[in-house]
Nucleic acid binder design. Structure first.
Lengths: 163, 163
DNA sequence: ACCATTGTTGACAAATACAATCAACAACGT
DNA sequence: ACGTTGTTGATTGTATTTGTCAACAATGGT
């Protein structure tokens, strides 16, 4: 019930690219920031280009940019482009249907359909922009709490959790 | 983002076993009903026994029974016993935590955590009994609609969907 | 025109996980 | 004792995942 490393990396790559804004984001920026094996990242970026989520430019000032604003790229699209179906079993997939054993059981079929819908509901309604915003908020918050911790170490979260 | 064939089969196996009630359900019943490769089913049943979800008895009147009432076996337990984590990435798993790349992004980490919670929420709160009940209801309904279809083929669902 | 930089492509290889199989064995009921 | 049924461990084939490589193509700067 899990996604592949490739789709994890693709998320991180898109984060870097999104944060680069109108600048061309180089592969190297991504591999350095997130420690992704370079040639593996190549493949992943290829898929993202093929899926028209990003565009690329070669040359000394080349790199990658989002093909459309982050606000209209859903994470569901990303996952589908890289991993395929969102559904736990192929037989309940909307976009990648294939027969599978659970079809023999209406009860389980319904259940897994609900799971698929729950996952899809989240990922369809979360855009890359949402994630970038969330990312900013959390980074700001942790800078603040780090500052607070320096002022008063006794009350800080990490100190408490040592206990 | 999908579960394995093994956990699909394990669901079907548990359905058969649950429906057998206090009777011992034989392996053969399961393989015949759902067309599961027999020796593969062995392995799966082993895991279910090891996870103490079912108990077994050898001998000419042997077979498998639920280890506890279907009403206190959640599908989440089943999936964990056979497939491991419910989470899309190991780093957001409650029961099978392991480091994984997305940890480098608080934004995505939060998102995938939400996905995990949504899935867990469904599977933790659905018992095997719920599925069996659902199964009965749907079978009754389709018998009724089959009867209805015989009375008035023009309005039946399957006829409409041919269009 | 040339060069360094950067992305593109396709093929390839290693590692892992998945799915399936088998044979010898152990318990149980009659 | 006998047949039935589950148990165990080892093993195998295959697909997928993950990672690598080398040759190539475009771009910008000099």
């Amino acid at each position: 019930m899990r996604m592949t490393a490739a789709s994890e990396y693709s998320c991180l790559a898109l984060l870097s690219i999104a944060e680069s804004g109108s600048e061309w984001c180089k592969r190297q920026e991504i591999t350095e920031r997130f420690d992704v094996p370079t040639p593996f990242l190549e493949q992943i970026l290829r898929k993202l280009v093929a899926a028209r989520l990003i565009v690329s430019r070669r040359g000394s000032d080349g790199g990658f940019k989002l093909a459309r604003p982050a606000s209209v790229i859903t994470i569901a699209e990303v996952m589908r482009a890289v991993d395929g179906a969102l559904a736990p079993v192929r037989s309940v997939s909307e976009n990648f249907y294939q027969p599978s054993p659970v079809e023999a059981s209406p009860g389980f079929h319904t259940l897994f359909r609900r799971v698929r819908d729950a996952v899809a509901d989240i990922l369809e309604n979360t855009t890359l922009e949402d994630v970038v915003e969330q990312e900013k908020r959390i980074r700001t918050r942790s800078r603040k709490s780090a500052a607070a911790a320096r002022r008063n170490p006794a009350r800080s979260r990490s100190t408490r959790e040592q206990a």
